[in-house]
């Protein structure tokens, strides 16, 4: 570990990130990426760790309640002052909240008690097809249509695409800074997620999560 990050070395050591996430493999393997991230300073490494543990799907614990997620969200927002990090967290939470709301409405359930800045707005505009959020989130109609037509891969593509486009636009503004590294990691995660999409593996993971959740409920009962 180093006290401060040498952004010039770190950014230049990372391979070029393509303009589209729909590629066959990630530009750099997870192991190599972790090795390069050793160039991060203590403070930066800590922030990256916190953001990753909060956002990465692979690290989400199924037994975590909404209240716990909200507490973690509030704690993160209080401890992190970097505006881009806050933007990344908020954007990801918004996408999760809105997608969750679209799915719940489709199943005839109540509005979600999720975390994020749009929760109350969604509740107020529950009957509106796009919750009156289409100006801020133009991807909502596409995801809604894909959900209605039962195309999960299309839903995933639209969601990843919405996040990807935002990170690409932001990445064009930074060169050799913490923001550059963070946006690289955010895009790498999308490419990694896309390249690992596999129907068989997806079913297996779903079954595992289902079993885990059912076991949890049995224990509670």
């Amino acid at each position: 570990m180093t006290a401060t990050t040498n952004y010039y070395s770190l950014v230049a050591s990372l391979p070029h990130m393509p303009r589209s996430f729909e590629i066959e493999r990630v530009p750099i393997s997870r192991i190599q990426l972790q090795q390069r991230l050793k160039l991060l300073g203590d403070r930066d490494k800590n922030i990256v760790e916190q953001v990753q543990s909060f956002l990465l799907w692979d690290r989400q614990l199924p037994e975590r309640t909404d209240d716990e997620v909200e507490m973690e969200y509030d704690r993160l927002m209080k401890s992190i002052s970097n505006s881009l990090v806050r933007d990344i967290i908020n954007h990801r939470m918004d996408i999760r909240t809105i997608t969750c709301a679209l799915r719940r409405r489709r199943l005839g359930l109540e509005p979600p008690t999720a975390v994020g800045q749009h929760t109350d707005h969604i509740r107020k505009n529950w009957q509106h097809p796009d919750f009156r959020l289409v100006r801020e989130h133009p991807w909502i109609p596409h995801v809604r249509e894909a959900l209605d037509s039962g195309e999960p891969l299309q839903v995933e593509r639209q969601l990843l695409s919405a996040t990807w486009n935002r990170w690409v636009q932001l990445a064009d503004r930074f060169y050799f800074s913490f923001e550059t590294v963070l946006l690289y990691l955010a895009r790498w995660e999308i490419v990694d997620r896309w390249t690992r999409l596999d129907e068989t593996a997806g079913r297996k993971k779903f079954d595992e999560l289902l079993t885990q959740t059912l076991n949890l409920e049995e224990n509670v009962v």
Binding site: Y8, S9, L10, V11, A12, S13, L14, L39, F176
Partner: peptide, 13 residues
């Protein structure tokens, strides 16, 4: 220094 650090990093790739 800036350019040299970038060159050192690029050598890894």
């Amino acid at each position: 220094g800036r350019a040299g650090q970038a060159a050192s990093g690029a050598l890894l790739d």
